[in-house]
């Protein structure tokens, strides 16, 4: 028998590039992130028509227009709620929310924490540039205290959110951080987020060239980044530094940096366990601490049954118990009389 099998042509990055002209400022960190997302999409094994990219409002929220997938550019802060409706309508879809520090943590903070708590199988990419770009340069919920901006000429008096910690507090089941410039690393994170069944929260440090240039340069500039970035890898010791000569260790209930100079053994260095919530909390605490490296990678990862899965189960169960809904029977239930 000559059975001809027609395999669909494998997709490549260019299949995910839409025909729309990209309109971010030249040099914006968003370009790099878009490119990584387009790159990993063909590798996910998901048919293109099953991918939906959903955003709110902000510079990053233009993202869906540039992806040749299904896409929805929503309204300010509501992408997570919009995405929830899409996912519950068709749980087969691979749903990606693109949001920012303003969209996702200020105006959309409420929807963000509730999506995390419910654990729908949705991926959230939160582009954190610590500033409002689209409205031209006001401080955001992740801007540091004292930040001088257009709306805070004397310095902001708002304490910032700590995004991974917020996500942990909201019972997030996959919490990670990447950097726009760390392209290979980011690709790995995106793929990992995709394979996680449940809400994946990926904070991505993104440079806003126009209103907050260089805010992450200590994490991205070649000369210094190795001293300032701790790359978390499950099962591996938390070592950083140009010469891999520094590590994190637990001292009581605090983390401390130790020098690995031969005197202190590697044995003291903490091993990253992404299923350990307490450790994830300690690591998230480093976000704004001076004298500590900034962790990137997966902080926390735990598989918990998703909302969408439970919803389907309940519907199936109801059908099994009561039988497939019968409209006539519904109309006639209870006391009826005929004239």
């Amino acid at each position: 028998m000559n059975e001809v099998k027609t395999k669909p042509a494998a997709l490549s990055k260019k299949d995910f590039i839409s025909n729309q002209e990209v309109r971010w400022c030249p040099g914006c960190g968003d370009y790099a992130i878009l490119s990584q997302v387009q790159k990993i999409m063909p590798e996910l094994g998901v048919p293109r028509e099953n991918i939906v990219v959903i955003s709110g409002i902000g510079c990053s929220s233009r993202f869906p227009y540039y992806m040749n997938t299904y896409g929805f550019h929503g309204i300010h802060g509501r992408a997570t709620a919009l995405a929830s409706g899409v996912k519950l309508t068709n749980p087969e879809l691979s749903v990606w929310v693109i949001t920012g520090d303003g969209d996702g943590l200020a105006i959309g903070g409420n929807h963000m924490i509730h999506l995390l708590r419910r654990n729908l199988d949705i991926n959230i990419l939160l582009f954190n540039n610590e500033i409002y770009g689209l409205t031209k340069g006001q401080y955001s919920p992740t801007s540091e205290l004292g930040k001088v901006t257009k709306s805070s000429p004397f310095g902001s008096i708002d304490y910032p959110f700590n995004p991974p910690q917020l996500a942990l507090g909201a019972a997030g089941t996959f919490i990670a951080r990447g950097i726009d410039r760390e392209q290979k690393h980011l690709q790995g994170l995106l793929k990992h987020a995709h394979t996680h069944t449940g809400t994946a929260f990926v904070e991505i440090y993104q440079n806003c060239l126009i209103f907050n240039n260089g805010v992450f340069s200590h994490l991205t500039e070649k000369e210094v980044k190795a001293e300032n970035v701790l790359v978390l890898e499950h099962g591996k010791p938390m070592i950083f530094g140009k010469n891999e000569d520094k590590g994190l260790r637990l001292n009581g209930s605090h983390l401390e940096v130790i020098q690995l100079d031969g005197k202190t053994s590697h044995d003291h260095v903490l091993i990253h366990d992404e299923t350990n919530k307490i450790q994830a909390l300690l690591l998230s605490e480093l976000t704004y601490l001076k004298d500590f490296p900034t962790p990137i990678g997966v902080f926390y990862h735990q598989d918990v049954e998703t909302y969408d899965h439970m919803m389907i189960k309940q519907i199936d169960y109801a059908k099994e118990q009561k039988g497939e809904g019968n409209i006539e029977a519904l109309f006639h239930e209870g006391y009826t009389w005929t004239v």
């Binding site: 939906v52 519950l88 409420n110 509730h114």
Partner: peptide, 16 residues
């Protein structure tokens, strides 16, 4: 979680 999410999820469901 609120009225806004109620209607936004509804728009998402209509889209899908």
């Amino acid at each position: 979680e609120d009225e806004i999410a109620g209607v936004m999820s509804t728009i998402g469901a209509a889209y899908a």
